[in-house]
Simulated assay, not measured.
Amino acid sequence: MKSRRYSKIWQPYPAGYDLREHISQIFQFSVRTPKMTRFRLILTYGLTILNNSQLTNVTFISELELHTDEQTHECSFQIENNEKLDAGKLCSTTQLNGMFRVRVSGNSKNCGCNGYQINTDTLHTFLKCKVTYGLVLTNITESDLSALSNIKEVRGLVDIQMTNLKNLSVLRNLKEIYSKNGEFNENVCFNVQNNPEMTRLAMPALKELFDAQLGPFIMNLRDLHPEFCITYDEMKLFMEKRVYFINIDAKYCTEDNLTIGAGDEGFVVKLTKVSHLFGSLTIRNTLLEDIEFLSQLEFIAVLDNVDVIQIVSNQNLNFVYFPWMSVIITRYNRTVVIDKNPKLTSPELSIFNVQYATRIAIVGDSLGKGFLPENI
């Protein structure tokens, strides 16, 4: 059947009303056959089924192909206040899998939870929630948030602001956060801001931070307790999930900068398998000829106010290259200093893979004018 673009609000029907018959009239073909004919329903503006006191099932939804907006791949899907309707398994259907704007509530059985409506009055309703559409905690000073402890997946914005929380351990079972930024949007997906008592994240189960449209997953950690710190395991997750930070007002719970100096040349072989560096890198006053021992280094995250990398005064050094570098996270400046290495003189020196856009300023007398393009 030819597809058509359609947006409809189903409002109350009298007792015994045959919703399938109404759909048949709308789409002008019979749905009374033993197996409903499959057709395509393009939901750009959304589907709403509200306040139908006699409605007992919406199984027809499983026979639809839902085609959404081409840019956001999303539409509003609202099934609420149908007091006899069992919608307990609706959110797990193929049609709704991956949708973020699903609202199913006020029915005899519901699925999913609207995380944009968490407050003192609604908190108890989240006790059985495993999937929420968004998770917003603002202006909450509750001492007991244990009703949120069973949440395992969030689809949409996580926004924690203006609370007295010391950490997010109440979300100890949260494993996955999914956003829908897409290629051209830069919306914050995980915002933790203006929580002056927060010293840790403490979300041990968190394993996935992902944009469902392959756009950037963006975090903001700002205006927290002065002692707020991030563990190496947490930073490792942020690195490997390619998280972008608007702000990262944090320090490491333990610091671990890497400094290679005079006399350390015989020990660098121990670094050949290092892929993650939690702190800055300094190579100074050595007799090294190259840095091949760091060829596996892929991730660097620096939270101190220091240069990301310093390679200075190495008399025999003639080659510097990080072939696998793919993520550099910093709280402050993003500067690499390569200076006073007399055998490293090429003005066209490239230290990163050409496919990696670093947004790094590279300075030093070995590089002619002292700066290279951002996307070297």
Rank of each mutant, 00 (worst) to 15 (best):
K8A: 09
W10I: 08
W10H: 07
Y13V: 10
E21Y: 13
E21A: 15
I23D: 05
I26R: 07
S30T: 10
M36H: 08
F39D: 01
L47G: 01
N51Q: 15
V58D: 01
T59M: 14
T68G: 08
D69E: 11
D69K: 14
D69V: 14
E70L: 09
T72F: 10
H73K: 13
S76P: 01
E83Y: 08
D86G: 06
A87M: 14
C91H: 14
Q95R: 09
G98N: 03
R101K: 15
R103N: 11
S105L: 06
G106R: 02
C113T: 02
Y116C: 09
T122G: 08
T122W: 06
L123D: 01
H124D: 07
V136P: 00
S143T: 14
L145M: 14
L145N: 02
A147F: 07
I151T: 03
E153K: 15
R155F: 08
R155C: 10
S169W: 10
V170M: 15
L174A: 04
I177L: 02
Y178N: 03
N187R: 11
N191K: 14
P196I: 08
T199L: 12
P204W: 09
A205I: 06
L214F: 14
F217G: 00
M219C: 15
N220A: 12
E234P: 01
K236N: 04
L237R: 03
I246A: 10
I248N: 02
D249A: 13
Y252L: 12
N257I: 02
L258N: 02
G261K: 07
G263P: 08
V268G: 04
T272Q: 15
H276K: 12
L277C: 10
F278A: 08
T282G: 12
T282L: 12
I283A: 00
T286E: 04
S295C: 12
E298A: 15
L303F: 07
L303Y: 02
D307K: 06
I309L: 08
V312N: 07
N314I: 01
F319N: 06
V320N: 02
I328L: 06
I329D: 00
R331P: 00
R334S: 03
N341E: 04
P342C: 04
T345M: 03
T345W: 02
S350L: 09
F352N: 00
N353M: 05
T358H: 04
R359G: 01
I362V: 15
S366V: 05
S366E: 11
S366I: 03
